Computed example of a mutant assay.
Amino acid sequence: MSPAEYQVTIVKYGTRETVRSDVYLNYHLYDEPDGPIGMDYFFWVVRNTDRTIVVDTGFSAAGGARRKRTTLIEPAAAFEALGVRHPTIVVTHAHYDHIGNLDLFPDSPLVIANAEVDFWTGPFANRVLLHHSVEDDEINHLRQRPLRTFDGELDLAPGVRVIQVGGHTPGQSVVLVDTAAGPVLLASDAVHYYEELERNMPFTQVSGLVDMYAAFERIRAMLATGEARHLVAGHDPDTLARFTPVTGPLAGLAATIG
């Protein structure tokens, strides 16, 4: 790999089974029968010869147990299997299933949008419909860490760009990564399911509905123009099947691009 090209590893560490009306906002408006749907939980590792970047760190044991999520592999064990030691960490947003293990890397620099920090330290963070997606001790941990914040977009490193799109949360961000297989867009929760983007079906948890629709439009444009070639959704059970499976201790739980 060149210094500006990376390999992306997608790690599935958790899962759950639910129903469509639980994941799509106002599902009854689509006039479709309800039905079962899976939800997988991922984090992402971006590496080349010069650096390692972790995009989100998954839910903690406490955060997952409180919500009755199924853990397939402890994130700490997955990071160990991948040899991740002192990464830079991009926080796409501050929900419990994305910042639950920041304490595994106490000395790692954290990158996060200003709007995300401002929101979770602001006057509306404790409202029930928003607060249920976070853990207070994890937000406090985030607040106590030195942060590299940005507005709009950040060129984090050659070949890695972090882009704030909002919608799901005020500072929801995506990460665009150059690989030998073409640019990869780690959508995180800007696109939980591929169906969200294909059918304009917003996720149930949303801070700005118009911003979420606008994020869909921006991501579609990135794919149409070739700015992004591969889309990695944040929770879709079909995600791993779209990319190259890994072997070894993470077989069945991880795939790579690039």
Rank of each mutant, 00 (worst) to 15 (best):
L130M: 04
L129H: 13
F43Y: 15
R145Q: 13
G182Q: 12
S60N: 05
P87W: 04
Q164T: 14
H93L: 02
E138V: 00
W44L: 12
G159K: 02
V91W: 00
T71P: 01
P106W: 12
T179H: 12
S173V: 03
G122C: 03
H98W: 01
D136G: 04
P123E: 02
F43A: 13
P183C: 08
D137F: 09
L129M: 13
I89N: 11
D155N: 14
A113F: 11
R143P: 11
Q172V: 06
A77G: 10
P158E: 10
G159N: 04
P123L: 00
R51E: 15
D151I: 07
E135T: 01
V162A: 10
L147V: 03
V84D: 10
H98P: 01
L176A: 10
N126M: 00
V111T: 07
L142W: 03
F59R: 01
A62E: 15
P109Q: 13
G100N: 11
R67M: 08
D136E: 14
P170N: 09
V174C: 14
L130K: 06
E80L: 12
T52Y: 12
L154T: 07
V177I: 13
G64L: 03
L156R: 08
V162C: 08
P158I: 04
Q172S: 15
V54N: 11
G152P: 03
P106E: 10
V54T: 10
I139N: 05
P170L: 04
A113M: 07
A77E: 15
S133M: 10
I89H: 12
R69L: 14
F105N: 02
T169G: 03
E135W: 01
A125H: 06
V117K: 01
L176I: 06
L154Q: 12
H131F: 00
N101E: 09
V54P: 04
V90F: 02
V134R: 10
V117W: 00
W120H: 03
R51V: 15
A125T: 02
R67T: 05
P106N: 07
H131K: 14
P123D: 04
N48M: 07
G100M: 14
G58I: 09
G182F: 13
F119M: 07
P183K: 11
V84Y: 09
G58K: 08
R51M: 15
N126W: 00
L102N: 05
S60E: 07
R161C: 01
D137W: 07
S133D: 06
I53K: 14
P106H: 12
I163V: 15
T88E: 15
F43S: 14
V134H: 09
N140E: 15
E135F: 00
V84M: 10
H93M: 01
V162E: 11
T121L: 03
S60G: 12
S133V: 04
T121F: 05
G159M: 01
F59H: 11
P158H: 04
L110D: 08
V165Q: 14
E74Y: 02
D50S: 11
T52R: 08
H141W: 14
H132W: 12
L156G: 08
R161G: 00
V162K: 06
G122Q: 03
L110C: 05
N140R: 15
P183D: 08
Q144M: 13
D103S: 14
T71A: 08
A65I: 00
R145I: 08
F79K: 12
G64P: 05
R85D: 07
D178I: 05
V91I: 15
H93P: 00
P106S: 06
